[in-house]
């Protein structure tokens, strides 16, 4: 019953393995790319990412899905960062696709160049992806990214957001959440951790460019992630995918908790899963089993100082809960509807 030609099977959301990577009980087409034996493993064994690296996982998820969506006609450009360093130290590379690393802040521009070359060469089928961490995307690469968006270059830019500069040893980036400890926002003094700043929501900034597609995704929601990559690759022009990828080292979470932490970010409302086309939100993923933000925070040592009690900490936790609540309100995340994850 599981062969390619079997009729589409209605997935019931309460059966065995509804949310699993694969499921031998449903049609092959309904399983994730990651479930297939012939997935491209764009990022293969032997890379030097830390144990339980969310970025390594997210990159394979996204690129394998893009490979499937483009019939393996894919070129990837990589910003400097963990992903680049742990995959391509001479003399070994873990990539199995055409891939290039140029600089920290120019991945979007380099990819725009690749896309231009493909256009001029008439190789329409060859698609271009740029990828980087939150630092390379939201900070140093922001100018190039915005330019690529505004020109509507035919590039899917994927940001693997692990919320700090991990490659250099966990320094604060504009994606670092409030109160989080990093090496440059130490958990010391009267206001430990990152300041309660106003933050920078890159998916919303991307939407403000009115580009064809913007989405957020998580390593804890594989089917959703793959659907978004597939949708992105079905469109042309500038597209942006922001993937939440926990970093056990930088967040002080257990390597085996990487997916659980990402899942709690979704369930708490701190990381909303949304989709937008041409600047308009087209879909959001409702939260299944909502949890308070403390469930998410307590698995991570970077927030340990917040959970030591006291009035001030209670006020800060309430402020973080408000961030989550506002996300939930803004995107209507708690509603009666079976989620697609």
């Amino acid at each position: 019953m599981s062969d390619e030609n079997a009729p589409e099977q209605k997935v019931k959301f309460y059966q065995k393995g509804t949310y699993t990577v694969g499921n031998r009980l449903v049609n092959v087409r309904q399983r994730s790319v990651q479930a297939s034996m012939d997935r491209s493993n764009s990022l293969t064994c032997g890379h030097r990412a830390c144990q339980g690296c969310g970025e390594a996982l997210g990159a394979r998820y996204a690129i394998d899905a893009a490979m499937r969506a483009t019939n393996n006609q894919l070129i990837a450009i990589n910003a400097t960062g963990c992903l680049e360093v742990f995959t391509t130290p001479y003399p070994e590379t873990s990539w199995q696709i055409p891939w290039m690393h140029s600089l920290f802040g120019n991945a979007a521009a380099v990819a725009a160049g690749v896309a231009a070359a493909m256009r001029v060469k008439g190789l329409k089928q060859v698609r271009t992806i740029a990828q980087g961490g939150d630092g390379g995307t939201m900070d140093i690469g922001f100018g190039c990214l915005s330019g690529m968006f505004e020109r509507n270059d035919d590039v899917l830019y994927i940001c693997y957001d692990n919320e700090a500069y991990m490659n250099t040893g966990v320094q604060r980036s504009s994606a670092t959440p409030v109160a989080a400890r990093t090496a440059t926002t130490p958990a010391m003094g009267a206001n430990p951790g990152n300041s309660f700043n106003s933050g920078k929501n890159l998916p919303l900034i991307a939407m403000a460019h009115n580009i064809p597609y913007v989405a957020t995704a998580s390593v804890a929601a594989l089917h959703d992630l793959e659907a978004k990559v597939t949708r992105a690759m079905s469109l042309h022009g500038a597209r942006y995918l922001h993937i939440h990828v926990p970093c056990p080292l930088g967040w002080g979470s257990a390597p085996h908790d990487t997916i659980q932490v990402a899942r709690l970010a979704i369930k708490s409302g701190l990381f909303p899963l949304i989709e937008a086309e041409h600047g308009m939100v087209t879909a959001t993923v409702p939260i299944r089993q909502p949890v308070p933000v403390t469930d998410y925070l307590k698995l991570q040592k970077r927030f340990a100082h917040l959970l030591r009690g006291g009035e001030e900490n209670a006020r800060k936790l309430a402020a973080i809960q408000t961030i989550a609540d506002n996300n939930i309100k803004r995107f209507n995340l708690v509603r009666k509807e079976a989620p697609r994850v």
Binding site: N106, V110, G113, A115, A116, A117, M118, V120, K121, G147
Partner: peptide, 26 residues
């Protein structure tokens, strides 16, 4: 020929790096 108006000199050469690496005279 693709003529690309970029947002900085850094981007200008970066785009050229990409297009050249993809085999286009840049």
């Amino acid at each position: 020929c693709e003529f690309i108006n970029v947002e900085s000199e850094f981007a200008a050469l970066s785009v050229a790096i990409g297009s050249s690496a993809a085999g286009a005279r840049s």
